[in-house]
């Protein structure tokens, strides 16, 4: 079976040049650590900013006359509105309790009647969270009976959204640059590694190997290389996260261990990066061999 040859040669290639192989693993590991740390950095940054935001986007105050039936109806309308992530009802009593907690004074002791209105606190899903969308929501809510006033801190909201958006843009650009430089870093390293095997490639080709049979073992070797690099990168990052926590430096909200998709992504990116890099390098080398 030709597959036998490809697999054995792919693995034997590693044994034959352990130093060069480990060198490449090292460079792939560094590349992957950079990419994954970039992603984690952004994710953690967004988490922190998210914590700065109010715990809800807007509050709908109801008129005093609203009875239980109307409230129930409004609750249904609001919660069925597309893009609502979360809705909480605050009764007059809840509002009084919150007032009490905030100002240390009992409203009921000052006035006989509770003047605070009942309300709904509404939070939108991330993808629906734009000023225009929220404004449209407010407009349709204001048309409903028994809705007294809607409080939406538009300025603060806009500012936070703006910061988030620019973080996304900067982060995407930064991660793109990191990925680009890792591709260069790795392909350079692979080229050095393959260069030392030029004689092998030439000899095997002269002995009658098809281009496929020349390339396949290197492709496999590249895949293994990327996989090992990916595993190392994940271990290094989680070790680092653990150390940050262990020494009470910071307890990150977003860690690689809680993100299987980031782990799988790191492995797949590593495998693709180095197997394709290997393929490209060998292909280029084959241009010099008839």
């Amino acid at each position: 079976m030709k597959l036998n040859y490809i697999i054995r040669e792919g693995i034997v290639g590693i044994r034959r040049s352990t130093m060069a192989f480990m060198n490449s693993v090292f460079s792939v590991t560094i590349a992957l650590v950079l990419v994954a740390v970039g992603v984690l950095f952004v994710d953690n940054g967004l988490e922190f900013i998210g914590q700065l935001q109010a715990d809800y986007d807007l509050e709908i105050f109801l008129e005093n006359e609203a009875d239980a039936g109307i409230k129930q109806e409004l609750a249904t309308i609001i919660s069925e509105y597309p893009g609502i992530f979360r809705m909480d009802y605050l009764s007059k009593e809840d509002a009084a309790a919150l007032y009490n907690a905030e100002f240390g004074e009992d409203v009921l002791s000052l006035l006989d009647d509770n003047p605070l209105p009942s309300s709904f606190r509404v939070t939108f899903e991330e993808t629906y969270r734009s000023t225009n969308y929220i404004q449209a929501f407010i407009n349709s809510m204001e048309a409903l009976p028994m809705v007294d006033e809607i409080m939406f801190k538009r300025d603060l909201f806009d500012r936070v959204q703006g910061i988030m958006k620019s973080i996304y843009v900067v982060a995407a650009a930064a991660i793109f640059l990191i990925i680009l430089s890792t591709v260069f870093l790795t392909s350079n390293n692979l080229r050095l590694m393959i260069l030392s095997r030029y004689d092998f490639i030439e000899t095997v080709r002269l002995l009658g190997a098809s281009d496929f049979m020349v390339k396949a073992p290197f492709f496999l070797e590249g895949g293994l290389l990327g996989f090992i690099g990916g595993v190392f990168a994940i271990l290094i990052i989680s070790g680092f996260e653990f150390a940050l926590k262990y020494f009470h430096i910071i307890d990150l909200p977003s860690r690689i261990m809680n993100h299987p998709e980031l782990m799988i992504g790191t492995l797949l990116f590593g495998i693709a990066l180095s197997s394709l890099g290997m393929l490209k390098t060998v292909r280029r080398m084959l241009r010099f061999v008839a």
Partner: peptide, 8 residues
Amino acid sequence: ALPLELLG
């Protein structure tokens, strides 16, 4: 063995 292995 190499030429034979290349042919599978």
